[in-house]
Structures are given as structure tokens and as C-alpha cells.
């Protein structure tokens, strides 16, 4: 089979995944969420600024200013790279060296 045929098979497999995803995620789910969310209050009322207002019921969330609600994975810069590299290192250490240890002990035959 030539390279083009192989690429076509990969594309078909990806299309299958995307098709499943589109069937699983309703198209209007996000729109509904966007419609239903409260308006952002980016400035503080005088009462809130003075600290006399009950903050628990307040819609003012200055920490969200300029950001979308609902969590944003785009937070973090190079710290994110270090975090992900650390996660990968821990997994490698646990799995690769764990497997080697099990093999040495002959605890799991098929390893």
C-alpha cells in the first residue's frame, strides 16, 4: 500500500473519532451555557469596595476580569510546561521502572 493510501486510512480513522465526538456533543450545549450565564460585573460597587457588602452573594468577581468563565486551560505560562514535564516524569518513573522491577522479580510473567 502506498503512502497516500495509508494517510487516507489515518484520515478515515480520525473522521470516525470526530463523527463520534460530534454525535456526542450537542451543538447547542455551549450556546445554552453562554445564554444562561450571568453578566459579568467588572467594577466594584461603593459598598463592595468598602467591604460592607456581603461578598458571598455578589456577582463581582474581579479575578475573572477579562477572562472567560468555566475554567480556562490557557492559564499558566512556562509553569505549565514544567508541570506537564513533571507529570510525565512521574509516570515514566512509576511505570518504566516499576515494570523493570517486576520483571526482575519475575512477579508478572508476561512482562
Amino acid at each position: 500500500m502506498n503512502v497516500l493510501g495509508r494517510i487516507l486510512i489515518i484520515a478515515l480513522a480520525a473522521a470516525l473519532v470526530i463523527g463520534g465526538l460530534l454525535a456526542f456533543v450537542p451543538s447547542n450545549a455551549a450556546a445554552g451555557f453562554a445564554d444562561g450565564r450571568p453578566d459579568r460585573q467588572l467594577t466594584l460597587d461603593p459598598a463592595q469596595a468598602s467591604g460592607t457588602a456581603d461578598q458571598s452573594t455578589s456577582a463581582a468577581r474581579p479575578e475573572f476580569a477579562g477572562r472567560e468563565r468555566g475554567g480556562d486551560h490557557h492559564e499558566g505560562g512556562f509553569g505549565h510546561i514544567i508541570r506537564n514535564a513533571a507529570i510525565m516524569t512521574i509516570i515514566i518513573a512509576l511505570v518504566a521502572f516499576g515494570m523493570r522491577w517486576l520483571r526482575r522479580r519475575r512477579a508478572v510473567v508476561w512482562l
Partner: peptide, 11 residues
């Protein structure tokens, strides 16, 4: 079309 589900799913 903008869809916030894609963003959270991407993350």
C-alpha cells in the same frame, strides 16, 4: 460558530 464546549473539551 463559537462553542464553549470545544474549549473545555480541548483543555
Amino acid at each position: 460558530p463559537s462553542n464553549l464546549t470545544w474549549r473545555s473539551l480541548h483543555g
